[in-house]
Amino acid sequence: MIDLAQSIVDGVLFGTTYAVIGIGFTLIFGVMHKINMSFAAASIAGAYSGLLVFLLWKTAPPIVVFATSAALAGLIGYAIYLLCFRFIPIASPLATLMSTVGMLLLVDEIIVHLTAGMPLSYPAIYDGYPIELGQLILRVDLLLVFLVCLVAMAVLLYLLYRTRLGIATRAVAQQPVAAQLCGIRLTQVNAITFVMTGTLGGIAGAMIGASVGVLSPLLSLPLTVKGLIVTVIGGLGSIPGAIVAGLLVGAFENVFQMWRGVTERDMYVMLLLFAFLVFRPGGLFRIAGARD
């Protein structure tokens, strides 16, 4: 019983990284009605790029590495917007699907070539003792990952619901023609959305690196799949949905990892997705009118 509780707690804490990745997918879908398949790979690439700090500053503290990861990931997000979306006709969603799948493969190849395919160690967020709560053990690093992701999500929600930029972003997502009639420029909002989600992805990538301890090119594909699963379970375009679904998938996979081992765990996550597609295809938080 205590094992189950422990698994759920660890899973929920780590699940915030999935939630953040899911938000990235869902926000781009909400604004552009297109899927950016390269998002999770770009997030991992962002985490990698944070390691560049060590070239200039050999003893850089972890926080500087994380911040660099986030900032460079924002830049990568903008580059992906330019390369995969900006000049591709709006009316062909398949075209951007293909261009971003291509980008996903390209990003992975670049990482493999630059690192010779070897995992690189990534600074830990905390390496002291865990906190004991009765029989429950709280991993402080996971707790910090949880807090960082929570803050990142809070900042995003603040931007979306309390600022002029947020009004523009939501306006474009809900009614692009009317948004233009208000004087909002679509290309500008789209570009900013990619920078915002890119940064968010960089934070998630950094936190994943920090809690796993290494970065490997093998991280990006499973993270892509998990991000998409979180997006579908949460409901395409729904941010609260992505948050809840991220925590749910995190807990779910950790429980099955405990019961069935790490080799089988992803199979059960797929089954969870299957169950949702059959019984609740709109996801947890279906948005009225957001489907096309």
């Binding site: 939501r170 306006a171 009614q175 009317a178 948005i287």
Partner: peptide
């Protein structure tokens, strides 16, 4: 073409 998921006040702010 109002923004359906935004409040009346937010719609006006967008304008």
């Amino acid at each position: 073409l109002v923004f359906p998921q935004m409040s009346v006040r937010e719609n006006l702010t967008a304008g």
